Computed example of a mutant assay.
Amino acid sequence: MTPGVDPTAYAPQSVPPPGETLKETLEVLGIPQADLARRTGLSTKHINQVIQGTAALSPDTALLLERATGVPAGLWNAREAAWRTQLAREEEEKALAEQVDWLDNFPLRELVSRNVLPDASKSVQNLRRLLDFFAVATPDVAQNLRLGYQAAFRRSTVLSRNEYATATWLRLAERQARERDCEPYDRAGLTALLPRLRALTLQEQGTWSTELPLLCARVGVAVVYVPALTKTNISGATRWLTSEKVMVALSDRFKKDDQFWFTFFHELAHVVLHGKRLTFMDDNDNLSPTKSHEDSSEDEANDFAAEVLIPAQYAAAYRKLAATRYLSLAAIENFARTIGIAPGIVVGRLQHDKVLPWTHGNNLKRTVQLG
């Protein structure tokens, strides 16, 4: 690729039609069109149509021209292909110019900040870049593909609420995850890794943000952090990229460690417990341990996350803590230290269980900032 050249920006090429090259070649060789027709066995009309560009220069014709002119067939084929490609690009340019309104659906300025687009202009060049970003041919294909994928999303209400911004966030996550090197998926290995992952909640973000993806990559889980986009309600997503590699994408929508870690283990539950053909998109409704869901997989994921964070062996101690009449922050910190987990996570659990008001204990939570 030439440095400084944008491969997605279309600029008309100066590729001459193969007929023009054939006409010049005949003039140099001093061969009239009628004589070329006799040498090749083609009609004079067909030779003239090739020269005028109204007939394609086929591979069979290229071989005949090679014998009659000495110019290799490969050159004639290359000229024909370059010419037809140029014509196709010009037609595509016209078609895309009528579809630039599709860009109105997307958070263009945020795509600029994520280095997907160079600017927020409503242009054919940006439309082409966005199609390349989603790896689709046209906006119509993208729409049909989205509808086809919808059946694989277990949280389709999220998509229907903010479908374009959500699709953009998911694509950002998927592209990042596909670039991450991972060992083949190992369910037993992931299960064995859970205590070590849980212990990371005690670490500062500068440590866990590096360790978490590295540890998970060893068992086939590509963990990626994708800051939330405006108008998306997504906390996390799980999607199998191959039968041996699964993406777990996490956003910073809630900005606090209790929500972040609950989301993470909720997504791991989808990996461990649920089907490889499904994509799970999770928002605040899914991540409520106190709410029953129509989709049992969400309740299962919530139970899994709650159990990992505060295991059953500490259930009695937690109930005792929750029953404390005058619950102090010091008591919460002491309990968290005893069970080896970040105190903000205990605060979040107590708030969900309505033991603490949402306004209390938040200073024990740590801020999560991705990107």
Rank of each mutant, 00 (worst) to 15 (best):
P7T: 06
T8R: 07
P16D: 10
L22V: 04
L26Q: 04
D35Q: 15
R38A: 10
R39A: 13
L42G: 03
T44K: 08
T44L: 08
H46D: 12
N48I: 02
Q49S: 10
I51Y: 02
Q52V: 07
T54C: 05
L57K: 04
S58T: 15
A68I: 03
A78Y: 07
A81C: 09
T85M: 14
A95Y: 10
D101V: 09
E110P: 01
L111A: 06
V112F: 08
S113R: 12
D119S: 08
A120H: 05
K122M: 11
Q125N: 13
L127G: 00
R129G: 02
L130N: 01
A137K: 10
S156L: 08
T157S: 15
L159M: 12
L159T: 09
S160A: 14
A165L: 06
R178S: 12
E183W: 03
R187Q: 15
R187S: 13
P195K: 09
L200R: 06
T207D: 11
L212V: 08
P213T: 06
L215H: 03
C216I: 05
G220H: 01
G220R: 00
A222K: 03
A222W: 02
L229M: 10
L229S: 02
T230E: 15
I234L: 15
A237E: 02
T238D: 05
R239E: 12
W240G: 00
L241M: 12
L241K: 03
S243K: 12
M247I: 05
K256G: 03
F260E: 00
F262S: 00
L273N: 15
L278E: 15
D282F: 05
D283V: 06
H293F: 09
S297D: 14
S297T: 12
E298H: 10
E298A: 04
D303Q: 15
L309S: 00
P311Q: 07
P311M: 07
Q313M: 13
Y314W: 15
A317K: 11
K320F: 08
T324C: 09
R325A: 14
L327Y: 07
S328W: 08
L329E: 07
L329M: 13
A330E: 14
N334I: 06
F335V: 05
R337W: 10
G340T: 07
G340M: 09
L356R: 01
L356F: 04
L364N: 04
T367C: 05
Q369R: 14
